[in-house]
Design a protein around this nucleic acid. Sequence first.
RNA 1: GGCCCGUUCGUCUAGGGGUUAGGACGUUAGAUUUUCAUUCUAGAAACAGGGGUUCGAUUCCCCUACGGGCUACCA
Length: 506
Amino acid sequence: MADKKVRVRFAPSPTGGLHLGGVRTVLFNYLFAKQHGGDFVLRIEDTDQNRYVEGAEQYILDCLAWCGLIPDESPVVGGPFAPYRQSERKPLYREYAEKLVMEGHAYYAFDTPEELDAKRKEVPNFQYGHAHRDELRNSLSLSQHEVDALLDAHTPHVIRIKMPTDETISFNDMIRGHVSFETNQVDDKVLLKADGMPTYHLAVVVDDYLMKISHAFRGEEWLPSAPVHLLLWDYLGWKADMPQWAHLPLILKPDGHGKLSKRDGARLGFPVYAMSWFDVKTDELTQGFRELGFLPEAFLNLLAMLGWNDGGDQEIFTLDALVEKFSIERVSKAGAKFDYEKAKWYNAEWIKKTSAEGLKDKVITVFADKGVAVNDDQYLLTVIDAVKERCILLPDFYQQASFFFGVPKEYDINSVKPKWNEAKDAFFNLLIDRYAASHTWDALELENIFKALMEEKALKAGDVMLPFRIMLVGGKFGPHVFDIAAMLGKEETIGRIEKALVVFNG
RNA sequence: GGCCCGUUCGUCUAGGGGUUAGGACGUUAGAUUUUCAUUCUAGAAACAGGGGUUCGAUUCCCCUACGGGCUACCA
């Protein structure tokens, strides 16, 4: 086991949107695998036919593709351990479950859900385990003859693990260190459901074994069922091949307490899913990080820092840097509250850090969504460089730069009108002439002309700078006003002044 | 309730028997920009509590409190 090739897996169930905690689990798996030259496997855990949601698998694939965390093996690309959908591996699990029954580590249970409910009401803190299994209908309490009869009659039944009595199960978690459990406290979990599908408990160990998984990273919510998995690895005779476990801390609500859920996102106004997800059952759309305008690099970066750090002061990491520096031992044990403000900061940093060329296609999409066509790439690149440091999310590019691609639709007239007068009107009419006469057209020259005229007319910058900005931009935002004029060009700048003058004087 | 895991500024965290307990987000003040934003400077802000162990605990141990997770024929 020492020299085993590193193989990790992400095993989501295709039931809906992909939670950022899920993406973080993918990320940590991916980083670990790549760092060790290993494989990253995507396995679809679709054993619950009731919860299966059409399209969810493709959506998960799309999310991973957006993030750039591409599986080496998956249902779509296949691999040496196909199939990668548990529903397609169904017959396999029964075999192992029966083997466990045969060897006395599991048993048939015939209790109906109603009987179980009744038992739970009757017995406080009921657990299907050593204390009560004799009182229920299973192959441990019934005679062999009765069991055979029930089986022959195709009576619906499940297979449960038989938890041993008075044993301590412990293991070494890569993040938490030594963890231990008393078997008496763990119930006889169902391994094979009445429909013949395995539960997570059986499927995860069978598939991790068959797919030669070397390291199993999953959320902390799995910790309580770890002893069941440990026992299964042992009972199935695979103990020597058991992966090393690491249980990741949970991502918590920013306010209050508890696991972060999509509801919190809706309530507090931030995304929780990687990409938008439309739930056909409830007819509701949950916004994703991608659609809200996050760069995948920023998304990954902020996720990585939620529970991990390299020990230094660095905050911004590329995926490659993360692959190099990541260490599962440096993942913190405690859950982390999600901080959307900091998430946005990461995105702003990444927008600043990314070249105009790298931002181009995404900005074009932002404009296209707003119905603005961009047909001059070179001009767009200049615009992006001029405004990117004032953008936090991608859609901000529209707010910050749309005026570069069209005359302002509205003017912040209230910021001009109260102080507007004939002197200012005269100033701008003269400015049109001066600008029209100018042979050079760059920011410095435009500013010189502007200021010279200002002095002539005994006007202050405060009197005319803002109106000028509003003429070109429409509002009190954007880069330096002479830079804007320079980029807009002579004809456009003059045209905008003329057009605005009509409005201001009206 | 039972079991398991956890606990350093508001948040994410570094650190580790002797430190002015460091960084980042946010926040406050100032500089720059007489649009904002960016940038820069400065500031406020934390070791849950109680017992041990020790010359000395925020750091190691125990207890308590608090928080979280699990407790389905869901994952």
